[in-house]
Simulated assay, not measured.
Amino acid sequence: MSDAVVMTSVSKVYGRGGGAVAALREVSVTLPSGGFTAVMGPSGSGKSTFLHCAAGLDRPTSGSVRLGGTELSGMGETALTELRRERIGFVFQAYNLVPSLTVEQNVLLPLKLGRAKVDREWLAEVLRRVGLGDRARHRPAELSGGQQQRVALARALVTRPEVVFGDEPTGALDTMTARDVLSLLRETVDALGQTVVMVTHDPVAASYADTVLFLADGRIVDALPAPTPAAVADRMTRLGAYA
């Protein structure tokens, strides 16, 4: 299994002098290709900063981030924007859909922005996989929250990205709908060989991953393979997250 993302001694400090806050401290981790990694930790532990640095949305103060064989630290903004559009998929808690566009147009947005060719067969396959094959002409307002998040997932997958990053992707969904979306993420890993990295606060969501990384005070303090909801909740309690 190759490496999708390699972070080496990554630190991120916000502010200067006495008001400086270290969000990440010397984080080194390898996220494997074709794996599903969940990232958990108490509020303020650095989860979002970890995701933003790993995905090239934010620059580390020090250290190195590699996506595949590409070192991100020396890249300019334009090159980073292109890299994110072509090689990375994003699914956020907010669906970030364009209300005036149809499902199909929303899904194709990253390809249109990158002036890339549309593979109609792959588009149909992605829409079918997320259960929206018959909704391609609908607009977001005609869809439920769960369906809108599926559109966001299809948009993340349509570029055939090296990694899909999810930031609390089920945070705004009810329990049953969240499980549908998590099952879809799991299926993209198992059936399509997709790499998924997901920040979550929910032990049930984390249990869909192959491995859970636990952050505390900007450091990775533990990793739990083959997680169960109970084991994840227990570990979070010992981090003081649910105390």
Rank of each mutant, 00 (worst) to 15 (best):
G41P: 06
G41E: 06
P42K: 14
P42M: 14
S43M: 08
S43I: 05
S43G: 05
G44Y: 08
G44R: 09
S45V: 09
S45A: 13
G46A: 08
G46V: 06
S48R: 09
T49N: 07
T49R: 07
L51N: 06
H52C: 10
H52A: 13
H52V: 09
C53P: 10
C53D: 02
C53M: 06
C53Y: 05
C53K: 03
A54P: 02
A54D: 01
A55H: 00
G56E: 01
G56P: 01
L57G: 09
D58Y: 11
D58P: 12
D58A: 14
D58T: 12
D58H: 12
R59V: 10
R59W: 12
R59P: 08
R59S: 11
P60A: 04
P60R: 01
T61F: 07
S62H: 14
S62T: 15
G63N: 01
S64F: 05
S64D: 11
R66S: 03
R66V: 00
L67R: 00
G68K: 03
G68I: 04
G69A: 04
T70C: 10
E71L: 12
E71S: 13
E71Q: 13
E71V: 13
E71Y: 09
L72G: 00
L72R: 00
S73R: 14
S73M: 14
S73E: 15
G74K: 02
M75T: 08
M75G: 10
M75D: 08
G76D: 14
E77V: 12
T78S: 15
A79C: 13
L80E: 00
L80V: 00
T81I: 09
T81L: 11
E82L: 15
L83F: 07
R84G: 03
R84C: 01
E86Y: 15
E86P: 14
R87N: 07
I88T: 12
I88S: 04
G89Q: 05
G89F: 03
F90G: 06
V91T: 10
V91P: 05
V91Y: 08
V91N: 04
V91R: 10
V91Q: 07
F92Q: 03
Q93G: 06
Q93F: 07
Q93N: 08
A94C: 14
Y95I: 12
N96A: 14
L97Y: 05
L97A: 07
L97E: 03
V98K: 11
P99C: 05
P99H: 06
P99A: 04
P99Q: 06
S100E: 14
S100Q: 14
S100V: 15
S100I: 13
L101T: 05
L101A: 11
T102N: 02
V103N: 08
V103L: 11
V103D: 10
V103F: 10
E104N: 12
Q105P: 09
Q105R: 14
Q105K: 14
Q105L: 11
N106F: 08
L108E: 06
L109M: 08
P110C: 01
L111A: 04
L111P: 05
L113R: 09
G114Y: 08
R115Y: 09
R115W: 06
A116E: 13
A116D: 13
A116C: 12
